[in-house]
């Protein structure tokens, strides 16, 4: 069976669980525990192992959606989940105290995944009016990690339509990056 694993990364409270629920054909598998760290994210539960959802493409093909636990304490799970993934949707909540720093942190950690496939940044909770603009995310990314091809969108993680656009863009970007350079470009190493 052909499978394509897409990882949903990002800090606690960014909407990874909601994003998977928006896309999955099945009721997602959740491993949530009561959240005792209400300072970092004021929500009742938090993911401690993984979230899992899937999209069935055909009888022999699925897109598997894995969500990481966002807290760095669970970093050992990140490595486990990264192994089979071909790309990531990195969710960052715009009302995070340091959303751009978080974006760069996760891009760096999962750089191997970017190299292997690709990444999309999905900014959640930008409707609350706090935090940087999308343009500022792009500028920060270009300044800190020049040369990366990563689409950045604002999203409502609860919106299936918006999350489909993010996933579509991820796959298109992976496919396009894998193509040979055009006549105007230097061949890639």
């Amino acid at each position: 069976m052909a499978e394509h694993v897409v990882l949903f990364t990002g800090p606690m409270g960014a909407g990874k669980t909601a994003a998977i629920a928006s896309l999955s054909d099945i009721d997602p598998v959740r491993t949530e525990a009561a959240n005792t760290d209400r300072v970092t994210a004021d929500k009742a539960t938090t993911t401690v192992a993984l979230d899992y959802g899937e999209i069935t493409i055909g009888p022999d093909e699925k897109v598997r959606l894995y969500g990481i636990p966002g807290q760095t304490r669970f970093e050992f799970m990140w490595k486990v989940l990264m192994r089979r993934a071909v790309g990531m949707i990195l969710l960052v909540n715009n009302d995070n105290p340091d959303p751009i720093g978080q974006m760069l942190y996760f891009i760096d950690y999962f750089h191997e995944l970017y190299e292997r496939g690709g990444a999309v940044v999905a900014i959640s909770r930008s409707d609350v009016g706090l935090g940087p603009t999308r343009e500022e995310y792009y500028s920060a990314l270009a300044a800190a990690r020049p040369g990366l091809s990563i689409p950045i969108f604002s999203v409502d993680a609860r919106s299936p339509e918006q999350m489909k656009i993010a996933l579509f863009s991820l796959i298109l970007n992976i496919e396009s990056r894998a193509a040979v350079p055009s006549r105007y470009e230097e061949p890639r190493q």
Partner: peptide
């Protein structure tokens, strides 16, 4: 123990799941 505590939590959640 910090790392072990996180692993315990993940394993328990998976088992219960």
């Amino acid at each position: 123990h910090e790392r072990l505590a996180s692993m315990v939590s993940s394993l328990q959640a998976l088992a219960e799941g």
